[in-house]
Amino acid sequence: MKIGVIGPGAIGMLFAFYLQKAGASVTIYTRSMEQAEHISRFGISCNLDGQVETQFPDAVPLGAIAIEDDYVFVAVKQYDIGLVLPHLQRTQARFVFLQNGMGHLSLLQNMQQKCIAVGIVEHGARKETAGSFVHTGMGVTKLGILAGEEEFQALLPLFQAPYFPILVEKNWEEVLRSKLIVNACINPLTALYRVRNGVLLTNPAFHNAMKQVFSEVIFVLDEKEERWEHVCNVCRKTAENQSSMLTDVKLGRETEIDAIIGYLLMQAEKQNKQVPLLAFLQQSIKGLAP
């Protein structure tokens, strides 16, 4: 089976590594020739609990060759989807999009292809170099199929390893909403305060700030207070993790603040709801990582 992975960040390398390990023929599509050459020469190395293993997928810059894979995992940040979509128009592959937030759903629903899914990734991964990453937390990939359900059945056996499982979610929109709530409460605050996830629980002032953000999020989404316990549980389980938004801020890269908080602000505007704290967070993160 031929698998394409677009985007060699932490999540892209995670999928390329484990799918190649499971027996697929993987091609990872990079932004630059330099990174493609690095991966072609040295492979992709995964550090899991101090044990390092390397797999050797093919690697080429996106656009250098036609995409002829059976399945393509799109692992770029949400703000780069618009740059990737033109490369997908001439292929009939089945697509799995692995972005945070929910702002990209309208784009996916307008695609001409017949087989499209979203993946909600609950693994922790941290990119170390152009061809290596640390698998910081084992989780599950939850697959929500927008169109072409039967076409994705052949993909599922590649996720049999206990450290890289998959779960097909019938109510995938609910799963996306749940992850959106968690991301909105944790990522911007960790980026603003420059702390690891768990500090939002142990620092009383930061904990109160997270609860205030949560209140505005569920106000926009018409959700219940019971969601708070899930947010705290995720924060507790990922206590030692550095959020991807904090990493982006530290490196001066564009963040996914518009994909997460920006989506909530658009929903609030449609409903004429005032959410000043969410607006403050969006502008604060944009100021830190323009």
Rank of each mutant, 00 (worst) to 15 (best):
Q267I: 04
L146H: 02
N272W: 01
K286A: 01
Y263D: 11
L251Q: 15
K179P: 03
V96Y: 01
L278F: 02
E223S: 13
L264F: 04
H207V: 00
V96L: 08
G139Q: 06
Q35R: 13
I181R: 13
V121K: 07
H123A: 11
Y163Q: 10
A161G: 05
E149T: 14
K114S: 14
L200A: 06
G137W: 00
G139C: 01
V168F: 01
L155S: 03
N272E: 11
C46A: 15
N100F: 00
K2M: 03
H207M: 00
A66W: 02
Y79G: 03
L167E: 15
Q242A: 07
G119N: 09
A36M: 12
L288K: 15
N197T: 12
S25Q: 15
L251Y: 09
Q113P: 01
C232Y: 02
P57G: 08
V220L: 11
H87K: 04
L14Y: 05
Y79S: 07
K237N: 15
T136Q: 10
T190A: 14
M245I: 07
P188M: 13
A64D: 11
E240A: 13
Q20E: 13
K21R: 15
V52S: 11
C115P: 02
I285F: 06
A117F: 00
A191W: 00
Q153W: 05
D69K: 10
L14M: 11
T255P: 00
K211Y: 01
L281I: 08
F17Y: 15
W228N: 10
A93P: 02
K270L: 08
V199M: 05
A16V: 10
V275W: 06
Q271A: 12
V175S: 12
A130D: 13
S284D: 03
I257F: 04
A279Y: 07
G4L: 11
N241T: 09
T141C: 07
P8C: 05
L278P: 04
Q160T: 13
K273G: 00
A147H: 12
G12I: 05
Y18E: 15
L85S: 11
Q283Y: 08
A259S: 12
A161H: 14
P165L: 00
A66G: 01
N100P: 02
D69I: 04
A239G: 02
L167Q: 14
L146C: 03
F214L: 06
R253H: 15
F42C: 10
Q271S: 10
L180I: 03
G103W: 00
F152E: 14
V199W: 01
Q271I: 02
L19K: 02
W228S: 06
G4N: 08
V175L: 07
D258L: 07
F164L: 04
Q267E: 15
F17R: 11
E269T: 13
M245A: 07
A205P: 01
I181E: 12
G119K: 07
T54Q: 12
Q271C: 02
V175D: 09
P188F: 05
E122I: 00
I81C: 09
Q283W: 06
L189S: 09
V134H: 05
M266W: 03
E151W: 00
N47M: 12
V76D: 06
Q51S: 12
V26Y: 05
G50E: 13
